[in-house]
Nucleic acid binder design. Structure first.
Length: 191
DNA sequence: GCCAACGTTGGC
DNA sequence: GCCAACGTTGGC
């Protein structure tokens, strides 16, 4: 294993031959996902429908919102480094009855500093985040479509092929990657 | 309302 | 650097 480089990344086109450790080895999920982030195209974000529902997103101007307020480093890394223009994102209702994936949205602006962290009056204010050294990031998401039918968390848990979903493995994370196969399975379940 | 699974903080 | 205490998220 090569030593980690510091500073700006340099291009290295050699194929990486390093064997991939099992993702759950040593519980290093966030590191594993951070490394895999480049390869991924699908994500899942959580929101409490009482606070901001998928319908709220559909009704928003341009069906778009700033996904602000995330204050978890693993989730921040996905927002800042992982999510790319055009990536598709499941919209999940947490703290709902039942919890469900209700719709699909799309990244329309890549990670940029979350201004609510700079605002003393904001709930998301963080004195450690300065405009010239921001700690917290957000993306802009635009509603694409409601799922034909919501897919519930119990349904997801009942599927063996979805047992490894980050949604299941890291229950508290509010922004998680979704593998292509997982995405396709869930879209099929909804259809 | 309870609790599991973390992340954060602070004492040492 | 370790670890106990505490806080938060979110499922049940």
């Amino acid at each position: 294993m090569a030593a980690k480089k510091k500073g700006p990344k340099t291009e290295d086109r050699r194929p990486k031959k390093t064997a991939e450790p099992a993702p759950h080895a040593e519980g290093k999920w966030s590191e594993w996902f951070a490394r895999k982030a480049r390869e991924r195209r699908y994500w899942l974000v959580k929101s409490e429908p009482e606070v901001f529902s998928f319908d709220d997103l559909v009704r928003a101007p341009k069906r778009t919102t700033h996904w602000d307020g995330v204050r978890n480093f693993a989730a921040r890394n996905f927002l800042r480094d992982g999510m790319k223009l055009g990536d598709h994102v499941f919209f999940y209702h947490s703290m709902a009855n039942p919890q469900v994936i209700v719709g699909i949205c799309e990244v329309v602006r890549e990670g940029y500093p979350d201004p609510s962290a700079f605002d003393k009056k904001s709930y998301g204010y963080d004195e450690n985040s300065k405009p010239d050294d921001p700690q917290w990031y957000m993306v802009d998401l635009r509603a694409v479509d409601q799922l034909p039918r919501p897919v519930t968390l119990p349904e997801i848990k009942a599927r063996k092929e979805l047992a490894d979903m980050a949604l299941i493995r890291i229950g508290r994370l509010s922004v998680t990657p979704v593998r292509v196969k997982e995405w396709e399975t869930i879209v099929k379940m909804a259809g």
